[in-house]
Simulated assay, not measured.
Amino acid sequence: MTEVRRSLGLAGAPNVRDMGGLPAGGGTVREGLLYRAPALGRLTDQDVTRLGRCGLTDLLDLRHGSEIDVAPPDRLPAGPQVAHIPIFDPAHPVFTYVSAVLLGHDLSAFVDLGTEGTPGAMLSIYRWFVSSPAARAGFATAMQRITDATGPMLYHCSAGKDRTGWLSAILLSALGADRDTIRADYLLTNEVSAAGNEAILAAMASRRGVDPELVRPVFVAAPEYLDEAFAEADREYGSMDAYLRVGLGLDEMALARLRGRLLGPAR
C-alpha cells in the first residue's frame, strides 16, 4: 500500500502526508500537489528543509486566531502564501470545552458537556462542520483556493484530524473517491500520531492530573465522528453530492477544474 510513502516523515509533525496516490474518480490523486497536516510550529530545521523541497505555493491555516496565539508559530520554508480561513466558533460551548481539554484547563465550568462526555462533544463538532453557515463558508473558501492554486498546497488545523479531516473528506468526495478510501485516509491519523498523542496524554495526567480517558476522544480520529458528518450532510442535503453543490456552492465547472488539476491516471 502507499501509506508509508505518503508520509513526509517529519519528526516535528508526523501527520504531514501527501494526498497523492489515493484512488478517486477512476484515477488517482496526483502526487506532490496537495498535503494535509497538523500545525507546523514544532518542525525541526531538517523538517523545514524537507518541506521546502515540496515547492509549496500556498498554505491554508484553518485555525482561529485564539488558537494561533497560544501555539508555537508555524515554521515554514520560504515560498508559500499563507491564507487564514478560521473554521471555529469561539462562542460555541463545544469548542471552548474541547479547547479547555486540549490546554489542560479546569473543566468544572463545563458540567453539562462533561456529563454528555467528550465523545458527544466531538460528534457535535462534526455536525457543526456541515450545519453551520460559517463552517460551510470556510470549507467552501478552502475548496475554492485548492481549485485555484497554481502549485503544491498544504492545509492544516491544530491536530490535523478534525477540520483537516473533514476538508480531506470533502476534497476526496469531490474527486470521486469511495467512502472506504476516505475513511482509511481519515483513520491513518491514528497510526501516525499515536506515539505523540500518548506522550501528550501522559504529560497532561502527570502535570495537571487530567484523566487520560476523559480527553482521549479529542485526540483520536474515530470513524463515528466522520460518519456523523456524512450523516449530517445526508440529513441536511439528501446526499454528499448535494452538500458539495448546494451547501458549498461547487458547481460543475468548479468540480471539473478541481478534478482536472488533481486527478491523474489509474495505476
Rank of each mutant, 00 (worst) to 15 (best):
A254W: 06
A222S: 15
D45F: 11
R216T: 09
P77N: 03
D162H: 13
P38D: 07
A134C: 04
A78W: 04
M1W: 00
Y35G: 10
R208W: 00
T150L: 04
L172D: 06
I125K: 01
T115D: 13
T2E: 12
L262R: 06
F95D: 14
R6W: 01
S131K: 12
G25V: 05
T57N: 02
P73R: 14
G79K: 01
D211G: 08
H84V: 12
A203I: 02
T96D: 13
L167G: 02
G160D: 03
A184H: 03
G79W: 01
A78Q: 14
D178T: 04
F129V: 04
R267H: 15
G55Y: 11
R75F: 02
L34V: 14
L250V: 10
Y243T: 05
R17L: 10
N190I: 09
G249L: 07
D61G: 10
V215C: 09
G138R: 10
W166F: 15
P223N: 04
D58C: 02
P80L: 09
I125W: 01
D227Y: 00
E228P: 00
S99W: 00
D251G: 11
T118R: 05
S173C: 11
D162R: 10
I85D: 01
T164D: 01
T150N: 14
T57E: 06
Q46C: 10
E191R: 14
L154W: 01
E213W: 04
D251F: 03
G104C: 06
V111D: 13
M143D: 06
G21C: 09
L40K: 02
A142Q: 07
G120D: 03
R259P: 00
G41T: 12
T49W: 07
G79S: 09
A254D: 14
A233F: 10
T189E: 02
A121E: 00
S7P: 03
L172T: 03
G160K: 04
A169V: 11
M19F: 15
V48W: 01
M143P: 00
L214H: 08
G238W: 00
L262I: 10
I146S: 04
D227T: 12
L172M: 13
Y225V: 09
E232S: 13
G138P: 09
G165T: 06
R127P: 00
Y186Q: 06
I87R: 12
V215D: 05
P80H: 07
P133A: 09
R145G: 11
A203H: 07
Q81M: 10
G12P: 12
R245N: 05
A11L: 13
G247C: 04
R36F: 04
Y97H: 15
